[in-house]
């Protein structure tokens, strides 16, 4: 148990940093939105490891669920092309 928690935290940390880097680097807007949603999802697992189940639930439902869909609704309205 004492090894498992830091190991999982490290894994999540790497996954979140990669996803955040993708958000900035990628040319495609849908991929950036999905990567930001993935950052939120990994963060919600990290909150669970940090003994905060309430925050984990909120982040999973609101941060990664509803926010991503809001972005896609607006993206669908403005036509998905990337303006730089």
């Amino acid at each position: 148990m004492s090894v498992l928690l830091p190991a999982m935290t490290g894994l999540l940390a790497v996954a979140m940093l990669v996803a955040a880097a993708m958000t900035i680097v990628t040319r495609s807007l849908p991929i950036a939105i999905l990567a930001a949603g993935a950052v939120s999802l990994f963060a919600s697992v990290l909150f669970l490891l940090l003994a905060s189940p309430d925050v984990a639930m909120t982040e999973a439902a609101i941060g990664s669920g509803l926010t991503t869909f809001l972005f896609f609704f607006v993206l669908g309205r403005v036509g998905g092309r990337d303006n730089g």
Binding site: P53, D54, M57, A61, I62, G65, L66
Partner: peptide, 16 residues
Amino acid sequence: PGGGFQGGAILASAAL
């Protein structure tokens, strides 16, 4: 764990 804000978000996801 859970409460009004999480439950409200789940209700909204039904609308979604």
